[in-house]
């Protein structure tokens, strides 16, 4: 099961990168970045999983005494929580810049913005 999640995560990262490098519409590039970051989070969580164990929350299912033998690693989950929230912030910023770019030239095709090319 862990291998299924790992392979899916890697495939999502590669598909997102391919979409970001070959599309010309700016909004499609942003969608591809979103898919790629979802794949990265999936890989991180899949690494921290151990089979036969449960989530790192101590309630009536898991006693406090034998917690070290029954729960999985809690650190990747804390990291991925931060990553998901900051991913939303970056997506909002990218969308704002795309909207401002659209206002200057009225087109969403990235090959039309040649101001910085030499």
């Amino acid at each position: 099961m862990v291998y299924v999640a790992l392979i899916t995560g890697f495939v999502l990262i590669l598909m997102g990168l391919y979409g970001a490098l070959t599309n010309r519409n700016i909004l499609r590039i942003i969608v591809s970045f979103t898919i790629s970051s979802t794949g990265t989070n999936l890989v991180l969580i899949a690494v921290g999983y151990m089979s036969g164990r449960t989530a790192p929350i101590l309630d009536e299912a898991v006693n406090v005494a034998d917690a070290a033998a029954r729960i999985i690693d809690p650190v990747p989950q804390a990291l991925v929580l931060t990553a998901i929230v900051i991913g939303l912030g970056v997506t909002a910023l990218m969308l704002t810049y795309a909207y401002k770019l659209y206002e200057t030239k009225r087109t969403l095709d990235i090959s039309k913005y040649t101001d910085l090319k030499w």
Binding site: M1, A92, Y99
Partner: peptide, 25 residues
């Protein structure tokens, strides 16, 4: 994969708010 906190966050933020941001733009 036994990560309920992350599942809740991804469902609320990734599936809800990101889609709405895209549709606003």
């Amino acid at each position: 994969l036994a990560a309920p906190d992350v599942a809740m966050t991804e469902a609320a933020i990734g599936s809800g708010l990101t889609t709405f941001l895209f549709f606003f733009v």
